[in-house]
Amino acid sequence: MTQTSSIDPKVTSRPTRTSGRIARLLYRNEGLRGYLLMSPTLIILTVGVIIPFLILLVISFWTRAGVGFDTTPSLANYARVVNEPMFGILLGRSFWMSGIATVATIAICYPMAYFVAFHVHRNKMFWLILITLPFWISYLLRVFAWRVILGYEGVINSSLVWLGWIKAPLEFLLYSPTAVIITLTHAWAAFAILPLYVSLEKIDKSLLVAATDLGDGPVARFFRITLPLSMPGVIAASFLIFIPTTGDYITPALLGGPDGMMIGNLIQAQFGSINNWPMGATLSIILMLWIAAVALAFLYLTRLAQARIA
């Protein structure tokens, strides 16, 4: 990148006239050229992520006053989160539920990705499209579809009643944490299959042959070669699912019932009916910090595990 001297002199004939200084600056300064080329992304990132985040951070230090805000900086909202058990418990429940959903998603998607990566030899793209086909439907519609499947007179209950296995419909299927976990597991599956597939596909098949030659059975081979080498995909998939589902709003709102409420629902209520935007901002910031902490811990543990295997 820095070897500008090797460039053909015809192309590099120094800009001299009209475009003047800016052009010269651009010509000399490679970093500036790079930033200019990245500027669309940088602008979107600044306007769409950094500025809203700063607004959120500032509002979280305000307090509510009637309809408006008291803009004196204060830690009152953060103190409430620490002192009132409700926030901690809802946060813990959100992590617990989305953690189970993440593990379940990966457990279900890993075999699918494995199959496509190792046992499908022709038309892999077609298979991948087939697997992700259900996810072309809107997220909201998929959540509603689960309501129909899990409902009191839903697909599962009516078939079980028809088969005579149960007398009355199972009520725990809908309006419960179970319903939320099942739905999240299905709804985010596409985000697990693709990274898992990519990491499995990249594995050098000769390593597997070598492992077999040296006496590993299929199971040992899987745990010693395939799984460790596909860990980057597992980690990526876990993050892709865990981070957004922890703050999920619509799934617990439609399927959770009284006991399936998650922190996202409380944040929504703070910005809606409770009308306490500063508290909602505080909860969002704390959720972000906790997710970052959990993600880092997870990353550290997997690194540790990988190092031990290697």
Partner: peptide
Amino acid sequence: NRMNETWEAVKAGF
């Protein structure tokens, strides 16, 4: 504000 705050807490089980 106060009513909705209490009500949301009751619904969440607190």
